[in-house]
Design a protein around this nucleic acid. Structure first.
Lengths: 200, 200
DNA sequence: CTCGTAACTTACTTCGAGTAACCTACTGAG
DNA sequence: CTCAGTAGGTTACTCGAAGTAAGTTACGAG
C-alpha cells in the first residue's frame, strides 16, 4: 500500500483505539496489529507514539479549520460570525463524538509537542474570535479582546464535553446556550466602543 | 517518619515533579529518590503511579472546595455569589501556579479514576453554580441551568490557563473579565423568570 | 532480467511500573 | 531487661511496552 494511504489508515485506526482505551493504555503493537502491519512501520511513518498522537490531532485540527472557515465566510455581523463559528464547532464535535474528547484530553499527557498541537487548535479559534472583535471594533483593548476570546473558547469547549453526556443536546441547541450566556456581555462591550467599522 | 507526614511529603514532591516534567516523563524511582525513600514505599502508601497522581488532585480539590465555600458564605445576590466564587478560584490558581495547569492536564491521562477525580472538581463547581441559579430562580429549566454552569466553569478554567501566560493579569482582573462577559447573559436569563425568591 | 528503492518483518535492547521477600528499630507487656 | 509485634523501610527481582538494527520481499524502470 502506498505511503500516504497507509498513513491515513494508521491515523484512523490510532484515533479510534486511543479514543476507546486512552493513550496510555494503548500499545503500539496493538495499533500495528489492527492496521495489519508490524510495529516498525508505525515508527517509520510517525517516529514515536507521541508522533502518532500528534498526527491524529493535527488532522482533526486541519479539518476543523477548514469547516469553520467555510462556515463563517459569509457572516455580516459579529453576532452572526460568532453564531456560525460556534455552530461549525459543535457540528464538528458531533461528527467526531468518539474521538474528540479523548484526543483533547489525552493529548495533554504526551508532553511538549502534543500540548502545542492542541494549543494550536485553541489558538486557531481564539485568533478567529479575536480577529472579529478587532475588525468590528478596532479600538478594543487588545488584552481584553484576548481574554474575551479565551472565555468564549473555554465556554464552548466545556459545553462540547458536556453534550457528550447529554445526547439530546445537539449542535444547534448548544450554540444557543453559549450565545445566550456570552452574547449580551460581548455586545455590551462592543457598544461602548467608538463607532464600529463595517466588515470588509 | 510517621505515615501521615510521609504521605503529605510524598504528595508535595510528586505534585512538584509532575508539574515540572509531566506525568509520563516522571518515573516513580525519581520521586522516591527526591523524597529520600525507596520506591516500594510509594506503592505501599498510594498503590500505583496513578494513585499518587489521584492523591495530588484530591488534596488540591479539597483545598479548593474549602476556600470556595468560605468565600461565598456571605453572598447576598447571584452576582455577588458568582463574583466571590470566581475570585476564590482565581486566587487558588494563583497560589498553585506551578502545579495547577499540569495537574489538570495530566490527570486526563491516567485513565478512569483520575479522570473522575478531576471531573469531581468541576462537578463541585458546576453544582455550586447550578445551585445558586436554582436557589435564586427556582423555575429555571434544569437543563439550561446545567448548561449555564458548564459554560461558566469552562470560561473560568480556560481563563485561568491563559493567565499563566499573562502574569500581569491577577485574580481580580481575571474575575472582572469573566464577569463582564457572562454576567449580562446570566442576568438577562434570571430577569425573564418569575419573581426570584430571596436567598435563605 | 536485474537494479534500486519503497514497503515491510523478525528479533532484539532498554527502561520503567509494579512486586516478593526480607530487614531494622522502636514500643510496650511480662 | 528482654523479647514479641509491628510500623517503616530496603534490595533485587519480573514483566510489559517503547523504540531499534538489520535484514527481506515486491515491483516498476531501464
Amino acid at each position: 500500500m502506498p505511503k500516504a494511504q497507509r498513513m491515513a489508515q494508521m491515523l484512523t485506526v490510532a484515533e479510534e483505539i486511543f479514543a476507546e482505551q486512552g493513550y496510555l493504555a494503548t500499545s503500539m503493537d496493538e495499533i500495528a496489529e489492527r492496521v495489519g502491519v508490524s510495529k516498525p512501520m508505525l515508527y517509520e511513518y510517525f517516529g514515536s507514539k507521541e508522533g502518532l498522537l500528534i498526527g491524529c490531532i493535527h488532522r482533526a485540527r486541519t479539518e476543523l479549520r477548514e469547516k469553520t472557515a467555510a462556515a463563517i465566510a459569509g457572516a455580516r455581523s459579529p453576532e452572526e460570525f460568532l453564531r456560525l463559528g460556534l455552530l461549525a464547532f459543535f457540528e464538528f464535535i458531533d461528527e467526531h463524538r468518539r474521538s474528540w474528547a479523548l484526543l483533547r484530553q489525552e493529548a495533554a499527557v504526551a508532553v511538549p509537542s502534543a500540548q502545542e498541537e492542541v494549543e494550536g487548535i485553541r489558538q486557531q479559534q481564539t485568533d478567529m474570535i479575536g480577529a472579529v472583535l478587532a475588525s468590528f471594533t478596532p479600538d478594543i483593548d487588545p488584552l481584553e479582546a484576548e481574554a474575551f476570546a479565551e472565555i468564549v473558547v473555554g465556554a464552548t469547549e466545556r459545553l462540547a464535553v458536556w453534550t457528550e453526556r447529554r445526547p439530546a443536546v445537539g449542535p444547534a441547541l448548544a450554540t444557543e446556550y453559549v450565545m445566550a450566556v456570552i452574547w449580551p456581555g460581548v455586545a455590551e462591550k462592543l457598544m461602548k466602543l467608538p463607532a464600529p467599522a463595517p466588515p470588509a
